[in-house]
Write a protein that binds this DNA or RNA. Structure first.
Lengths: 174, 174, 174, 174
DNA sequence: TTTT
DNA sequence: TTTT
């Protein structure tokens, strides 16, 4: 069993940083990867690939990447599913990043000098979890949590508007 | 822009072989890739990754792989979306295989001796397309098409039960 | 900066297991990966790729793989160089495996049930080092070390007959 | 059998462009890929990985990349060996690039607008060959060839100073 | 025999 | 200096 993904593309918007109730950082972002070929209409399309990264590197991603940034991702494909608002099962495929590489030339005026960001330790499972929770969780607690951490909680799922609302303990990558 | 995926896993069921109205073969299958780490309940989960392959290798896949077969995939992540039956946009992420490797020891009694299957020529776009069509196509024509080709048309989307029904000209990988 | 390699192939001979003076296990093996295309003479050649794995997974490799075994490797390319016996610099390119996957169907009579082998933890550098040492080290000490560990020390470099003899403290992957 | 490499790094010098006697372009370059971890001395080392690309993309590489350029490579590891000047067999491991991605921000004043470079078509073997020839070929013919093509022939192997001098018909990637 |  |  092998599962390896390498991507280079640009962020479609600023990364979202959240924290699990236990305070573990998790960042999500979508990478637009332009295809290397054109479709029948002669247009060069792109793939929009949802990515997740945990822990310290999640904070680095939030600090150093923004909409339009060129970034590389080394990780694994993970799938999960949850029950949508309409009771239908929703299937999600996303990339769990083990490392994120900042490929943007360091902004001349900026402070950033770290140049890449490593994810969950291998050996230790770097695995998955749902950074948005099952859609049915009590969000009160996290809301506080989030406020304590000084970042704004999202009410929209950054990925695909699928109505998921929160992250939970089960999202811990182990 | 880079986009590369390598997977090794087992087919969750027999591959589905279809043909576009123009007679281009396309096979779809789902690979179960066991994770290398356990979750908090100590269970080793799997990821279920939808894969698509076009042309001659699609027929090889249909001929040589079946439910449970161990296979390797080298390809790209592609995303697409379509309007679901309920009018909601459905987002799909799947792997466009450029090659599929048969890792099962050759069945002693079998005929197969080819050992791997190459996808769309690089250089030529190996690109995407929706092997199930946009969900709104007229399926009469393909049904005939399919009968001509001597294989049974599916009425269920093999991937995620998303109500898509058919493949169309637009699915051609170029 | 990104560096990712995924291989599936067969061991050209039994893996070599050694230990650093500090007792860290390191296994080396060569993977024969058949090419998917034929040369101008119509022959299908192979690439012979030297691989290194450290620590516990090194012992798993030594226990579960042998000449001819089908295995998958996920890792990084590393390069190093040393002074050959003739005073010329020798350049070496090899794959540092982070995980090795055993793809051989479990031998019916055998004992093996573990099915893959994980390398150095990411986050922690899984990095390089020379599993054979610089060619100039005192080998007395290691010989004892090795005897303590109950395996036979090699006097030949399994890779490229390059006259390197031993592994040293500097080989520790961190 | 699978063999996939993805690299992002910087060119250690300008790429070398040559032509086979049949006029097929081949470019070689070395990518410095900084490691993501530090060694025991606390230094962050790099791997220096030799890459080869054929045909039209070889010319793109020669036109758009230079020493220090950030580039991505998607390809395969290939190995070959030849008899060195001292009669000893020399083993070479290099990456046959199928595509090279130019990750440098487009130089404001420059002409380049193509943004990546695709190698030999898959399906067709994109395979190997020795971009420097076997070391024993008659170089007269190529010299003319090269002059016809309007580029300067190298007398030094850019990779490893291994005394190889020329490229031949056998290098054609099919 | 190395890149920023 | 190679595997099935």
């Amino acid at each position: 069993m092998m599962n390896r993904v390498v991507l280079v593309g640009r962020l479609t918007k600023d990364p979202e940083l959240r924290y699990t109730p236990n305070g573990v950082p998790v960042a999500t972002f979508t990478l637009a990867v332009n295809r290397t070929f054109s479709n029948q209409q002669g247009e060069r399309e792109a793939d929009f690939i949802n990515c997740v990264i945990w822990r310290k590197p999640a904070e680095n991603v939030a600090n150093f990447l923004k909409k339009g940034s060129l970034a590389g991702v080394d990780g694994r494909i993970q799938t999960r599913n949850y029950e949508g608002q309409d009771g239908k099962r929703v299937y999600v495929t996303e990339v769990q990043a083990e490392s994120v590489q900042f490929l943007e030339p360091k902004s001349s005026g900026g402070g950033g000098r770290s140049n890449d960001s490593y994810g969950t330790p291998p050996g230790e499972p770097q695995g998955g979890g749902n950074p948005y929770g099952g859609g049915n969780q009590n969000q009160r607690q996290n809301q506080n949590q989030n406020q304590n951490k000084g970042f704004t909680r999202m009410d929209e799922d950054p990925f695909a508007g699928n109505g998921q609302i929160d992250i939970s303990d089960d999202d811990l990558p182990f």
